[in-house]
Every structure is written in C-alpha cells, then in structure tokens.
C-alpha cells in the first residue's frame, strides 16, 4: 500500500477503466468516488462508519464499504460501483420485487446482492441473510430485498 504525505496522483481501475485522480492522504474511497473528478454518486454516505452499507462497492468482486477503505489502498485493485453494472439481473430483480422505496440504500444492497449472485457457490438462505445483514434499509420490510437477491442467486438446496 502506498504511503501518502501530501496530495498525490494515483491510478485507479474503476468499472474497468483506468482513471488518474489526485487524492489527499486519508481520503476514503467513498470520498474519491463521489468527488468532482469521478462523479460516481451512486455510493451514498449513510454513516461513514461502516454500519449502514449504503456506500458498498465491489473491490475485486468482494462487497466492501467504501467509507472504510482508503483510496490509497485500492491502487491496482478493481473497483466496481453501481454505475458499472450493465443491466445486471439484480437491478431488474430489485424493480420487480419493489425492493426499494426512497432508494438511498439501494446501490449498496444491489452491490451486495450482485456479488452474491456472482459467487461460485450457490448460497443457501442463511448465507443470503448473512450477506445482507451488512446493510440497513429503513423503508422496506426487508422481505422485498431478500426476495430480490434470492431470485438472482442459484439455490444450493434446489434439486
């Protein structure tokens, strides 16, 4: 990992594209993503403390809270944000299952669900719950979100 003592240019791979951005020491990935240079505001600040998951992105396909990662840590890693999804099944599933209301937590939940659906193992129900517990939604009854994610994951218990 790079050590920064002053603003410095780093190269990030965001949604498959190399991007040069100037970052400050101590700058979180959430801050960099949402900043003027990248303008990827799909990841939302909800607590900036790792509690709510609204800022979840994928780093090398693993859902990660971007408020808890320094931008300097992710050079040479692949960062995927909700803007990088191209008509992914999880996005349709969220619409079909009414899995959001205000929409503020949606990007984060979608990234968790997407990663889970891409996972090689077919998750059982408790795995789906375990993954989704990282995030908070205050609007829905959660069943809608669970159903949406379940619908795009292979079911390990299915015959």
């Amino acid at each position: 990992m790079k050590t920064l003592t002053r603003p410095e240019q780093v190269t990030l791979t965001i949604n498959g594209e190399g991007r040069d951005v100037v970052i400050y020491p101590g700058e979180t990935l959430l801050y960099t993503l949402r900043g003027d240079a990248l303008g990827l505001t799909g990841a939302k600040p909800g607590c900036e403390n790792g509690d709510c998951g609204a800022c979840t992105v994928l780093i090398d396909n693993i859902p990660t809270k971007s408020c808890m990662v320094l931008t300097a840590e992710v050079e040479n890693r692949h960062v995927t944000t909700v803007e990088g999804l191209e008509d992914a099944p999880i996005q349709h599933a969220f619409v079909d299952n009414s899995a959001f209301q205000c929409g503020y937590c949606t990007s984060g939940f979608i990234m968790v669900g997407h990663a889970l659906s891409q996972h090689a193992d077919a998750p059982d129900d408790s795995r789906v719950v375990e993954w989704l517990r990282s995030n908070i939604c205050r609007c829905t009854g959660y069943q809608e979100i669970y159903d949406a994610v379940r619908s795009v994951c292979q079911d390990s218990t299915a015959p």
Binding site: N135, G141, Q143
Partner: peptide
C-alpha cells in the same frame, strides 16, 4: 450511531 442505536436488519424481520 447505528452500531449502538440498533434498527432492524435482514433476518430479524417477521
């Protein structure tokens, strides 16, 4: 904070 003010999470709903 949400780690001390606990709201419902997935799996805790009805």
């Amino acid at each position: 904070q949400f780690r001390s003010y606990r709201v419902m999470r997935v799996g805790e709903q009805a």
